[in-house]
Amino acid sequence: MMRPFLRRVWRSGRSYYGANLAVNGALAVIIALSAAFLIPLIRPENIRGIPPGMSPQLAYERAVAVVVLTLSLASSIGASATAAMVAGGSIQADIRNGVYEMLLGNGVELAQIARGLLAASLSAAAALYLAALAAIGAVVALEAPAAMPVMPAAALAMLASVVSGAVLIVFIGLTKPELFKMATGVGATKNVAYTISLAPGVALLFSMLPFFGGLDLGGAVAVAVALSSAALALSAVLAVATPRVANREKLVSQAE
């Protein structure tokens, strides 16, 4: 049951949002590569406000590590948006084209659809996560090997950002598909579903900002690990809940 959904999601997500996928993918690569330009700009002599008792070398290593952590999260948001678009684009198209009505009316259970879509969405998340992690990992290994110890925490935070986006987009798609509609605000137009799916990654990214000033790497890693674990646990709960709370009526009647 999983395989047909995997093929379908990758095919239809690509055909509906090909241009957006290319832009998002390019954005993720650019963010990852920008680390290659940013990291050499950080030098021990450039660091101001070193806490008393901390050597300039240690301050430098911590500054680089916090930058790596932050850039990793920024890169993962690009990967998360791309993965969400693969799954979300497919869900949107299938609702509009009456695919779920055909499936549900011919005896396919909502839970089977949800499982298939979650697997497909997570496959997109896994592929893009590995690509983003490889890009960041390569840059850090080449340019800032001293920051390598922070990579496990960065990898966990990136995973949380991408997985929560992938699960959230399926949850929204099957429970509140009306959120795929565009919303206009003051000077902005946004697709609410995709915006929500990126929220955990953005929250993780912003949680790193307070640590730039104090060079508190231990605090940054602790917060990143705690928030990432919470996001992953919440994603697991949502993944289990999705088949139970998916809205059969909306999946069928939204097409009209």
Binding site: M1, R3, P4, F5, R7, R8, R11, S12, S15, Y16, A93, D94, N97, G98, V99, E101, M102, L103, G105, N106, G107, V108, E109, A255
Partner: peptide, 29 residues
């Protein structure tokens, strides 16, 4: 649920090939 076959209006993705769509449904159903 597997005693019933149901034909709605629509159900096929206009961007997909007929063969791919039929293959998807036939495999799932």
């Amino acid at each position: 649920p597997r005693d019933v076959a149901y034909l709605p209006h629509g159900g096929l993705d206009p961007n997909a090939r007929v063969g791919d769509e039929l293959e998807f449904y036939w495999e799932v159903l």
